[in-house]
Design a protein around this nucleic acid. Structure first.
Lengths: 232, 232
DNA sequence: TCAAAAGTGTTGTGTGTACACCCATGT
DNA sequence: ACATGGGTGTACACACAACACTTTTGA
């Protein structure tokens, strides 16, 4: 056993038969009070006409994160959004063509940026509610499920919620983000007391206008650094 | 942008210039009341004679986890231990030879299994305290640091501690696991009250013998399934 | 004046934290 | 008898959960 220890160094690493490496991205956003992800309809086999996560090969001269950023830009036209590595999936037969290992990322996009989706062809790119996903290509169901699990954790224990909201937002909007992601109602008074006690919000001194009910205060996050705090 | 969407399908994926893929493993165990990891001294360039994490190439016909299990077996002779994917590291120049993406795993080994290390050559495989790590090869410092962070989180919020202990253990041993990993003292009475209230331990009705002080009750975990509970 | 969302407090319950002494055993 | 780790309870502070009505605006 010990003798195999340096096996790696015995290979000519330029000749070894190598798996392919891709990145796939789960792009989350909140639209119509619902949590959605972006999917793409495949045009070729395998899984032709199935919906799949956006993704593609990692180039030889770009890092994993750069590959994910590039894919994100290609699919949505957005950049500088929250993007975090999720997990790597490497089962031998997850792609029927050949051995493909994928590094999954997830992105959070706020409504200000989403307008850009208009320039994609609506018939083969679409947002789907997580409550109503079609059967996805490859092992993408599993990946999407895992991403949702991570997002739920992340929103409870960090300040990522800012990535899903516009710069300025009301406490009710913030609460809705929590309710939609966690898929449960949250008590308004307790939520407000808790979130304000964390001192992570800044009162912008502005109010919502043009609403046919009482205007609400607008807040923004003091910091866009991701902080680890128990939020809810 | 949208037109690039199916770039992946335009490549002949058997010919694309591909990064190499390895797995590296951070193998944790508690020895001499200290948290240690297993390192290997490199015999060839680059980083010849530096200490590095055990690892090696992912074969074409094995999953990522199988590759990690194989490496673990090769280095330590153990199997059926706690093994979890940590993160994937893919900076372009992390290996000076060529493009190498590594999927890092971490393993937790209990003292019952560790005897096996004897059959490795002591001069090029060794356990190092995390408080006293040498400078590691490649980006392995960063990987080890990240693994420790994950382990700290994991032990606070799940029942993984069982993986670092023998089948039967005393409450003091369990507490020591927490203290060593979290690197802080824990109050004995509060710890015991908390851990017993979680109902995850079973009283084996046995006691430690042959100790020159009052014997202690031996406990075991009711379940070896990993449970997500706030432990401490 | 109505509809719609904004905003606001109190109380009970449970949980975390701080803290010190006696017990059982082997040498 | 002494050294060593095993084992136990209480009090206070704080956080969480449950719960309903008044306010402000536009239509």
């Amino acid at each position: 056993m010990a003798k195999d220890r340096v096996d790696d160094d015995k290979f000519d690493i330029t000749k070894l038969k190598r798996p392919s490496v891709t990145v796939d991205i789960i792009i989350f956003s909140i639209q119509e009070s619902d949590l959605k992800i972006l999917l793409i309809k495949r045009k070729i086999e395998p899984f032709k006409k199935s919906w799949a996560l956006p993704g593609g090969f990692v180039w030889f001269d770009e890092s994993l994160k750069e590959a994910a950023e590039r894919e994100l830009m290609e699919e949505t036209g957005v950049k500088d959004v929250y993007l975090e590595q999720l997990y790597s999936f490497g089962d031998v037969n997850r792609d029927p063509r050949t051995r493909v290992i994928t590094i999954a990322y997830y992105a959070l996009i706020n409504p200000d940026k989403i307008k850009l989706k208009a320039d994609t062809d609506a018939s083969d790119v679409a947002w789907f509610s997580l409550k109503n996903l079609p059967k996805l290509a490859f092992d993408h169901d599993r990946i999407a499920k895992y991403a949702l699990k991570r997002l739920r954790w992340k929103i409870e224990y960090t300040t990522v919620a800012y990535s899903l909201l516009p710069e300025k937002f009301t406490l009710t909007q913030l609460q809705k983000v929590y309710e939609v992601i966690l898929d449960r109602k949250v008590d308004k008074r307790n939520f407000r007391r808790k979130i304000l006690s964390l001192k992570i919000l800044k009162d912008t001194k502005e109010m919502t206008g043009d609403v046919s009910h009482r205007p609400a205060k607008l807040y923004s996050f003091k910091s866009k650094e991701l902080e680890n705090i128990e939020i809810i």
